[in-house]
Each structure stands twice: as structure tokens, then as C-alpha cells.
Design a protein around this nucleic acid. Structure first.
Length: 127
DNA sequence: GCGCTGACGCGAT
DNA sequence: CATCGCGCCAGCG
């Protein structure tokens, strides 16, 4: 058989899909009221250096019922430009879950309430 | 194949 | 703390 059907489905493509599924699952597993950094999600998904990919995947998956609003930058700030529609939406959703958000930034390092303790664990303990 | 662009991260300044 | 610079990954012209 010369090349009747060379299985060039490429492990690459499958791997990309696997990455995406793992990432989506990792995001889905974030408990309400808690937040994770893009890097933490990537680590949880098993792909430590793919923080940017997490962002890309999230942008690609629009209304899949995914708790995308629980994913922030490593410094605790919302990744969107301030006052942008998405920015407003994310802070609104986080506040609705009891997350302490001030000016687009999650106060996780400051343990002022029981909620903060949970956030702190989520942000730093995920690593 | 190359360079630019992002919902990024982290150490250095 | 706020910024900068450089590294990382995947998509696209």
C-alpha cells in the first residue's frame, strides 16, 4: 500500500484537543466563590507553561456555561481593560459570588474575611 | 517560514 | 507597590 490512507490525523491535533478539554475541565472545576489564575488553571490541566493558551481557549468558548469569570491574572486583577463590557461583566459575576473585588482586583492576599481565606487557598494553594 | 499579537507570568528595577 | 523586560504558546497574514 503506497499511501492509501496515511493516518495523518496527527497526534498533534489530538493533543491540542486534549489540552483544550483538560483546560475547560480545570476551569469547570473551580468552585463558586473561588478564583484561579490562568497559570493555576494551566497547571491544574497538566500544562504548566500554557497560561496564554488558557486565555485563548476561554475567548474561543463563549456561552458554554463555563465559569470563565473565576479566572484572573496571577496578580489578582481582571485581564480585560478597565471599564470594558467584559471587565464589568466579570466583576459583576464575581461580586455576585461573594468574591471581594475592588476596582477590578481581587483582594486575596488581605485576609479580612472568611471568604478571603478561601480565595487565598485557591490562588496560592493551586500551585 | 517569519514576525506580530494576545483574557499571561515572573523576576528585576 | 507600579513598571519594564523577556520568556512562553498558539494563530494568522
Amino acid at each position: 500500500v503506497q499511501k492509501p490512507k496515511p493516518p495523518r490525523i496527527e497526534a498533534h491535533a489530538l493533543e491540542c484537543d486534549a489540552r483544550e478539554r483538560a483546560i475547560l475541565e480545570a476551569v469547570r472545576s473551580i468552585p463558586p466563590g473561588q478564583v484561579r489564575s490562568y497559570a493555576a488553571v494551566a497547571r491544574a490541566a497538566g500544562w504548566p507553561r500554557h497560561a496564554r493558551l488558557v486565555a485563548k481557549v476561554l475567548s474561543r468558548s463563549g456561552s458554554t456555561g463555563l465559569p470563565w469569570h473565576r479566572v484572573l491574572r496571577a496578580d489578582g486583577r481582571i485581564a480585560f481593560p478597565e471599564s470594558s463590557p467584559a471587565w464589568l461583566e466579570q466583576s459583576r459575576r464575581l461580586l455576585a459570588e461573594g468574591v471581594d473585588v475592588v476596582e477590578g482586583r481581587v483582594r486575596s492576599t488581605h485576609r479580612t474575611a472568611a471568604v478571603s481565606a478561601g480565595l487565598d487557598a485557591a490562588l496560592w494553594g493551586a500551585g
